[in-house]
Design a protein around this nucleic acid. Structure first.
Lengths: 336, 336
DNA sequence: AAAACTAACATTATCGTTAACGTATATATA
DNA sequence: TATATATACGTTAACGATAATGTTAGTTTT
């Protein structure tokens, strides 16, 4: 370390015998500076152990080079994967990310948005917990670029990247029905979440095509958070409701469900076949037969990032919305 | 929205007929202001849709109210749990967190530290990927408070919270040996990670107590990142090395290992018994018999936060280091 | 050789907020 | 009544970096 408690541009400027501005230009690789001076300044800066003050720079520049990622729950592997992919992709463009958990709570989501606004992030990627969040619409007016990932709004047009949830729900129902399952338990997310609502629509369609009626006692809407599905399934079984198939809102839910059903002695998938969503497989190896609705998750995340970067760099506020519905398919897994 | 593109303190001050400073005091709940004025100003600020500019505030205040959490991998449930617990606890004190992944990479860890320094965080909680990182020691000189979590340094004294890894390794080995396992595969992390090194020491001790010799071909050091343990175990089996027990560095590794062993037809735990570390159970229900080394993870995270907050608020730079080794125990799980 | 231009640097304003300091009024004490 | 003491505010100077604008010396143009 050197004699300066904190090395500022000023100190480098003094030592180099140039102005602060010249130091700034040298370190930021701007023009209007000779290679010789630039090299000299950079060398001095390095020697002095200069660490740029991002806060001061952000204030002056009017840009923090930071993106907020607002998600329901980092403990859901889908979200963790997305967060990591987004961070990696954005890192290449010099952006850092701020991760904010909402725990599927509308109020916390709005607090997160306010925090992002306050922290002056350059953009937001958000997986909203409701399909018609009025406070987020507010972002439009604030002219802060944002992209929805995984879930969308129905009451307003925005940029988004989602999976084809209608088809996902349809495929899942069709598969279970094709397997001869008669009493299928649908453990869905709340229908005020776009993906849950759309999966329900697809699910319903598959039943209607066969002239089947949806049995209300077999359709449940629950939070996609810790332990919830176990609580729910306990209650359902407690009521004496029987079923031979389950379609869960996420693989996470599906795992919990399988765990519990196994525990009470059910033979999976013989007695009860479970279908999940998201097809999480990258790290969380799971030995049971968990068929799942699959879609290119990384592609979705990257696409959201590209759209956001486009919005940030584009001067055209009125550019058409980028709306992507990514194809879903069935990923069939056998018991190993 | 109102006529102001961006509502600043100045605008509120104008409207309220007071000075900027008074507005600042009102909004920050400082003293030297009457309840009446405070109420009036706050009401006006709310009406005008004022959103504080955290960047400007941070620059002036010299504090960002942000903590960096530097971890190897957010995809490891242990880290995800820690991150969430830390965020929750710090949130109550008005802090936000910046999550930075290192992927167990020394270079990226140092970049993360530099970034944290540049972003002017108020403190760092870090799970270091090496037990003697010289660049982090550098933090001491920078007088930026930091606490190690899960892993510690051996070449320098710092604040830390770790599990009793020596004992953890000892217990695991003892358990497997007690079960009559003769050929135990130790899938450890790299020994330049303190926890891996200490678990090795405990492991060795258990063997020595019985007069057993460690078989080098059964001890492997690998990265605790995606898919690595499967790659490793494939190679080990490919070499014709047989084993009837496995002690893995993390539950994550253990899951991967069990997955693979199952896949190639092994009966778990009959043929091969696996012991993991961290005892992840909160969300990732896992149906196989995975006995694991347990310790109060949330307690560890909270403790790290308390220590950090203490350092931040304390004026005493020379306060004795807070060093905590949290008790570990065996969590035995049966096949369900 | 005068005018025009350019490269390379310096000077200064600015970002929005907070804190140190200063001041005036109201209240309490002697 | 005179003086001390709070209380509640205003004024102004940072915080550190960057962008806009100036300035100077050297080069090119005609």
């Amino acid at each position: 370390m050197n004699k300066y408690g904190k090395v500022k541009l000023k100190h480098i400027a003094e030592k180099a015998g140039v102005s602060i501005n010249t130091v700034s230009r040298a370190l930021n690789d701007k023009k209007d500076i000779s290679e010789k001076t630039k090299g000299k300044i950079r060398s001095i800066a390095k020697d002095m152990g200069y660490i740029p003050d991002a806060v001061a720079g952000s204030l002056r520049r009017g840009s923090t080079k930071t993106i907020a990622v607002i998600i329901p729950d980092i403990l859901d592997p889908l979200m963790a994967i997305w967060v990591k992919d987004i961070a990696t992709r954005l890192g290449k463009e010099g952006y850092n990310i701020f991760v904010l958990n909402t725990d599927e709570d509308y109020k916390r989501e709005n607090e997160a948005v306010m925090l992002a606004l306050s922290k002056k992030v350059d953009g937001i990627i958000i997986c909203p917990c409701q399909k018609d969040n009025k406070d987020i619409i507010f972002l439009n007016k604030k002219k802060l670029p944002f992209v929805l990932l995984g879930r969308r709004f129905t009451n307003i047009s925005t940029d988004y990247v989602v999976s084809d949830d209608i088809r996902g729900g349809y495929i899942a129902a069709k598969y279970l029905l094709d397997q001869g399952r008669k009493k299928i338990l649908f453990l869905n997310g709340h229908r005020y979440i776009s993906s849950a609502d759309e999966r329900y629509q697809g699910y319903k369609k598959a039943f209607q095509e066969r002239g089947y009626r949806l049995e209300p006692s077999l359709i449940h809407e629950i939070d996609n958070t810790s332990g919830n599905s176990i609580k729910a399934i306990k209650k359902i079984i407690g009521k004496g409701i029987g079923f031979d198939g389950v379609f869960a809102f996420s693989d996470l839910m599906a795992w919990e469900v399988i765990y519990f059903l196994q525990k009470i002695g059910k033979d999976i998938p013989k007695e009860i076949e479970v279908v999940g969503y998201d097809n999480i497989q990258s790290r969380f190896y799971y030995p049971y037969s968990l068929t799942s609705i699959n879609y290119p998750k990384r592609k979705a995340a990257y696409l959201a990032v590209e759209i956001l970067l486009g919005r940030i760099s584009s001067l055209d506020e009125k550019a058409a919305y980028s709306q992507h519905v990514i194809e879903t398919g069935l990923f069939k897994r056998k018991k190993i």
